[in-house]
C-alpha cells in the first residue's frame, strides 16, 4: 500500500540552512548535507530544499549543495526557489535533484510547466502554490505570499495539472506559521478536484494536525519545517502515532 509521506523542508541561503535548526548531537546544524542525512536516518520520506535567496550568485552555491546532498543522501529530494527556465531545471537534475518545485515563474509563464513536463517528465515537476483566503475566496499569491493575484486557487490547480505538473505543494498563507493546523478544507477540495498528489504545507504544530491533514485534508504528503528542526515533533514518534490511527506510513 502506498504510504503517506512526511517531508521536512529546509530553507537555504548561501548554501546554509536558515531559521535555525536545533537538533541534538549535530556537528554543524547549519550544514544542509549533515541535516539531510540526519533526517533520512530519522525516517523522513522525502526532503525539500528551498533556496530563499535565489540570486544569481547563489546559484552556484546551490548547485554545489545539491551535488553533495545527492552524493550522500539515499532518499528523494526536491529543490525549489528562483527556478524559471528549462536550463535551470536541467542543471539541478544533472546535479542529482529528483524533483524541482516552481512557483511564481509558473504563474508568470504557465507554459513553463508544459515545457518541463515534456522534457523531463511530470514526475519531477512540483508546482508550489501559495494561496490566501480573502473574503471566502482562495487567491494565489506570489513571492512567498507577499503579492496577491486575481487567480483562484482551484482554477490554477486544475490548470497546472492539465499542463503536466506531477504534484502540487499547497501552502496556505492563512495557516503558515500559526502552528494551528493545516488548511484541511481547501486541501480536501484540491484532492477531489485534481488527480495528482497533494502535499499539505503550512500550519503544522502538533501530531494531531498531521493526523487531521491526512484524514480530513486527504493529503498525500505533509510538509513542515520548524516542528521538525527544533525537535518538537520527532519523526519516528509522529509516524508511530499516524500508524496507530490507521494511516499508512513507512516505519
Amino acid at each position: 500500500m502506498l504510504t503517506k509521506r512526511i517531508v521536512p523542508c529546509l530553507d537555504i541561503k548561501n548554501g546554509r540552512t536558515v531559521k535555525g535548526v536545533n537538533f541534538v548531537d549535530l556537528r554543524d546544524a547549519g550544514d544542509p548535507v549533515v541535516l539531510a542525512k540526519q533526517y533520512a536516518d530519522l525516517g523522513a520520506d522525502e526532503l525539500v530544499f528551498l533556496d530563499i535567496a535565489a540570486t544569481l550568485e547563489n546559484r552556484r552555491t546551490m548547485h554545489d549543495m545539491v551535488l553533495k546532498v545527492a552524493e550522500q543522501v539515499n532518499i528523494p529530494f526536491t529543490v525549489g526557489g528562483g527556478i524559471s527556465s528549462v536550463e535551470d531545471v536541467d542543471d539541478l537534475l544533472h546535479c542529482g535533484a529528483d524533483k524541482v518545485s516552481i512557483n511564481s515563474s509558473a504563474v508568470k509563464r504557465p507554459e513553463l510547466i508544459n515545457e518541463l513536463s515534456q522534457k523531463f517528465g511530470s514526475q519531477c515537476v512540483v508546482v508550489a502554490i501559495d494561496a490566501k483566503q480573502v473574503d471566502g475566496e482562495w487567491l494565489v499569491h506570489l513571492a512567498g505570499g507577499t503579492i496577491p493575484t486575481e487567480i483562484r486557487l482551484f482554477d490554477w490547480a486544475k490548470e497546472v495539472e492539465k499542463r503536466g505538473a506531477g504534484e502540487i505543494l499547497f501552502t496556505s498563507m492563512n495557516h503558515d506559521g500559526t502552528k494551528a493546523g493545516f488548511a484541511n478544507e481547501a486541501l480536501a477540495h484540491l484532492s477531489d478536484l485534481v488527480n495528482i498528489p497533494i502535499i499539505a504545507s503550512g500550519g503544522a504544530g502538533t501530531i494531531q494536525h498531521f493526523v487531521d491533514t491526512f484524514k480530513e485534508g486527504k493529503a498525500d504528503a505533509a510538509l513542515a519545517a520548524s516542528v521538525f528542526h527544533f525537535g518538537e515533533i520527532p519523526i519516528l514518534e509522529l509516524k508511530e502515532e499516524l500508524k496507530n490511527k490507521g494511516i499508512p506510513v513507512r516505519i
Binding site: 500500500m1 502506498l2 504510504t3 503517506k4 509521506r5 520520506d45 522525502e46 511530470s122 514526475q123 506531477g166 504534484e167 488527480n195 495528482i196 498528489p197 498525500d220 504528503a221 513507512r250
Partner: peptide
C-alpha cells in the same frame, strides 16, 4: 486508471 492518483508517488511495499 484515474481511480487512483497518477503518478503513484512515494513509498510502497
Amino acid at each position: 486508471s484515474n481511480k487512483v492518483k497518477v503518478p503513484q508517488m512515494g513509498w510502497n511495499t
